[in-house]
């Protein structure tokens, strides 16, 4: 045991993964026992399925929906077709708009919450998250009741006499954005809150003492320092919005199609699994690109702050 003494002391100051030197065999066993089951599980139930989807992109659909194992690039030329690119573009636009609105509503909310007295903060935060804990589909359904031409909102507005004919609210791209925003807004507020809450109030004070007006303080101090939170929130909202198929179906009335609907339909209705897989791969590629941009931006921000 004495031979491990020196490295152990080092471990105290730097408790990194390999700080402590156990015998080689023991380390291997430890590694296998801890990492083995989890990584093994994720390999079987995530990596293999993903690899399967990836391989399907090269094949094509049989007449009755099977997968015919003849390699071709047909699926990719199909995705590049204007129709499908159009749907993907629509999805990116709607998800992007949702993200933007979530940021516009979420930032001030998170900012206010972070400046509340501590005991109120929890309450305000819980109130943001609480709707999240009723079923996602029920929350979507609530909007149907609200926005319907015979629904609560239109009844109220016509009743008061603001409008004389029901507004066309439901089954529009706007309704889809509203539904997505409603579903994922808490995912924006939470990371923003934790970023803003961590801010040192002295920085703001210093800025104010130096004569900066609140708006200037916000733009040059608060916002840059909370940008990592902004990025996280945006990814949290954008990613699930992009792949969602339930909200376009229920609130879009089948008139607005997003890429999630296409993938769902290729798998469950048209049973063209190879093409559905190719669409899914396109979405993944988009998201990987997005995450890379986010990581790059976050790194730059971190570097900028240090300088």
């Amino acid at each position: 045991m004495s031979s491990t003494l020196a490295p152990r002391r080092a471990a105290r100051t730097d408790p990194g993964p390999h700080g402590r030197r156990a015998p080689r065999r023991e380390r291997l066993v430890g590694r296998l026992a801890t990492l083995g089951p989890g990584i093994g599980y994720l390999t079987v139930f995530m990596l293999v399925p993903l690899a399967l989807v990836l391989s399907y992109t090269l094949f094509h659909r049989g007449r009755f929906g099977g997968v015919v194992h003849e390699a071709s690039t047909e699926n990719f030329t199909r995705v590049a077709d204007g129709l499908y690119l159009g749907v993907i573009w629509t999805s990116v636009k709607l998800a992007g708009l949702t993200t933007l609105l979530a940021l516009l509503l979420g930032y001030p909310t998170a900012y206010l919450i972070a400046r509340l007295p501590r005991s109120w903060r929890t309450v305000a935060l819980v109130l943001v998250v609480l709707p999240f804990w009723t079923n996602f589909l029920i929350r979507t359904y609530a909007w149907i009741i609200l926005l319907n031409s015979e629904g609560v909102l239109n009844r109220a507005l016509t009743g008061v006499g603001v409008i004389d004919r029901p507004l066309e609210l439901l089954y529009t791209p706007g309704a889809v954005v509203g539904g997505l925003l409603y579903a994922y807004l808490p995912l924006m507020v939470l990371p923003l809150y934790s970023a803003i809450e961590r801010l040192d109030p002295q920085l703001r004070e210093a800025s104010a003492n130096l004569g900066a007006r609140p708006a200037r303080t916000f733009w040059s101090v608060t916002l840059p320092l909370t940008l990592p939170g902004v990025l996280t929130g945006c990814v949290f909202v954008f990613v699930p919005s992009l792949g969602n198929f339930v909200i376009p179906e229920l609130l879009g009335g089948g008139r607005t199609v997003m890429v999630g609907n296409l993938i769902r339909d290729q798998f469950l209705k048209a049973r063209d699994w190879p093409f559905g897989s190719t669409l899914a791969l396109t979405v993944i590629a988009l998201l990987v690109l997005l995450l890379m941009v986010q990581a790059w931006a976050a790194r730059r921000l971190a570097g900028g702050n240090r300088a």
């Binding site: 995530m46 399925p49 399967l52 769902r264 559905g276 979405v283």
Partner: peptide
Amino acid sequence: LPDIVLAIG
């Protein structure tokens, strides 16, 4: 991962 990707996989 978007849920639909894991789902189809």
